[in-house]
């Protein structure tokens, strides 16, 4: 069923009642699993993700390839999508192209943002489990990984905060007056052009930019600006989660 975007222009409200620049409810917890070095649980609307970090630990020797034997830690990402997470119960194989692309994106992002040179020939494993998907999957994974890595105490340059941005009309509609949208849900993602953007902390430095849909060149700037602005909002929320947790730890340690 195609997304009904005709009503947007009437009240400037999206299908789920948000305005163009509103994020969905974003809640998170850290240190959810005691056994892991770092862990987090993140909800972006109805997208729910669990992330655990193990390491830095000495990984198994990769036979002669020497990828893990360098002077820097290797960041390995594994994403598992639960069968019940989507609307249709689709089985995904080990080497699903979409999953492996997300893994590579996340791994490359954190390899450049973490201080991997402090942990020579060791491995940092990031395990992500997607429990429920409703759009902004890559963004949710990046945010959850950031929290889990902070929980694990692995030094990083800054928070990596991600969100998606889209446009109110599809490419084919070629609407000149299309507004940019922030944080798309699954329905909107299927119909509208969107991009995933991640920034380094509160700066405007873009760490990840993924655009898989067709969109007019003129609309891109607006989308990107809204996305970067959304990332700053995400950062405030993530920072709040970390601070609350830190405060609790300090209070109990002071006893």
């Amino acid at each position: 069923m195609p997304l009904d975007t005709s009503t947007y222009s009437l009240a400037l409200l999206r299908l789920d009642g948000r305005r163009w620049n509103e994020l969905r409810r974003l809640t998170a917890q850290i240190s959810t699993q005691a056994a892991a070095d770092g862990s987090s649980y993140l909800e972006m609307g109805n997208t729910k993700v669990i992330c655990t970090v193990t390491g830095p630990a000495e990984g198994k020797r990769t036979g002669g390839a020497g990828t893990g034997g360098g002077n820097e830690a290797e960041v390995r990402v594994e994403i598992g999508i639960a069968g019940f997470s989507g609307v249709d119960r689709k089985r995904r194989g080990r080497n699903d192209k979409r999953i492996s692309e997300m893994q590579t994106t996340i791994s490359n992002t954190f390899a450049s943002s973490l201080f991997t040179h402090l942990y020579p020939h060791s491995t940092i494993n990031i395990n992500i489990h997607i429990l429920s998907q409703d759009g902004s999957l890559l963004a949710a994974c990046l945010n959850a990984s950031t929290l889990a890595l902070i929980d694990a105490g692995i030094p990083m340059r800054n928070y990596i905060c991600a969100c998606t941005a889209g446009s109110t009309s599809s490419h084919s509609a070629n609407d000149e007056a299309a507004d940019p949208l922030l944080d798309l849900n699954n329905l909107e993602e299927q119909e509208l052009p969107f991009l995933t953007v991640a920034t380094v902390g509160e700066s405007d430095e873009v760490a990840v930019l993924v655009l898989e849909t067709r969109v007019q060149m003129g609309r891109l700037e607006g989308m990107l600006a809204v996305g970067v602005d959304g990332c700053k909002q995400v950062r405030e929320i993530l920072d709040g989660v970390v601070r609350r947790r830190g405060k609790r730890i300090l209070e109990s340690a002071a006893v």
Binding site: N158, E202, L250
Partner: peptide, 11 residues
């Protein structure tokens, strides 16, 4: 340890 220690976050 004390609760009045300042807490900083990455970045």
């Amino acid at each position: 340890h004390s609760s009045d220690q300042e807490l900083v976050t990455p970045g």
